[in-house]
Design a protein around this nucleic acid. Sequence first.
DNA 1: ACATATAGTAGGTATCACAAACCATCGTCC
DNA 2: GGACGATGGTTTGTGATACCTACTATATGT
Lengths: 148, 148
Amino acid sequence: MSGVFTTPVALVRLSYLVNAIYADVCATHGLSVPQAQLMCVLKDSPRGMGEISAMLRLDKSSVTGLVERVERRDYLRRSMSATDRRAITVSLTPAGKALTDTFYEEISQRLTDLATSMPTDDRDHLNRIATHLVLTEDVPAVFGPVAS
Amino acid sequence: MSGVFTTPVALVRLSYLVNAIYADVCATHGLSVPQAQLMCVLKDSPRGMGEISAMLRLDKSSVTGLVERVERRDYLRRSMSATDRRAITVSLTPAGKALTDTFYEEISQRLTDLATSMPTDDRDHLNRIATHLVLTEDVPAVFGPVAS
DNA sequence: ACATATAGTAGGTATCACAAACCATCGTCC
DNA sequence: GGACGATGGTTTGTGATACCTACTATATGT
């Protein structure tokens, strides 16, 4: 049957497409992809450096620099943990929170537009499938709510 | 209904998952993600710098460096175009071709494994959906065959 | 022949990501 | 209560990525 890719090919290209849209929206807000991911991870609650490192699968030393560059733009701040004097709590500033919300909305809109180009039936399936994969494969909450 | 994400969230996380697998396989072969993408793009036929630039959506000057680093490892070579003396043709060396084939197989395997964790019915749907999106959105052939 | 477009490179800057070495604090175990 | 290993983060150094601007050389259209 013509026009049908194997599953791996379809997955890689779909991933490429989603990533391109993500990067595009990042660019319109002057953010890099890692910076936007960081802010999305902080969207719902402040986190420590180690926690961020685990969620974004980055080395701790990488997170130090990433946080520092976003902090320089006043989108987030570091504060000392009350309970652990080694630890730091990273949280969005009001400006950062606002930008993240806008960004999140825009990504959601773009991807929803994508999905509307297909039959409702298929959309429901996609939703179920992706949800299943994401849950069984233990994908960190780099976007959307933490709870499942 | 618990455990079900909205479509945008599912898409972003699925994309993250696929990308993590891709990056993982890259790492086992000592390749970076952009390097592997470059080699996959050259898998089936040699291409010019401009063509590569368009398919990977990179600035031409970025491609210069990327190609140079992969060439340094003897995975590809540049040769002059016969028809256009400005142009260059980038093609995989035998070693590069071999590595790319192995890499490609491995990614395919990992992603096929992913897919087998779900019902056959869902797998077919995913295939149809992703194929549809990829075709209507004109995603470049960064993986798999060029033809549709 | 001349203007313009195209193919590719060079140089400069910022970001990203890792590894190894390091400091400070926390918890535990004796 | 003090030594000791584990944990939270930073520093430093290196290499890769990616962009923009400027540039060379060749092709193409008029």
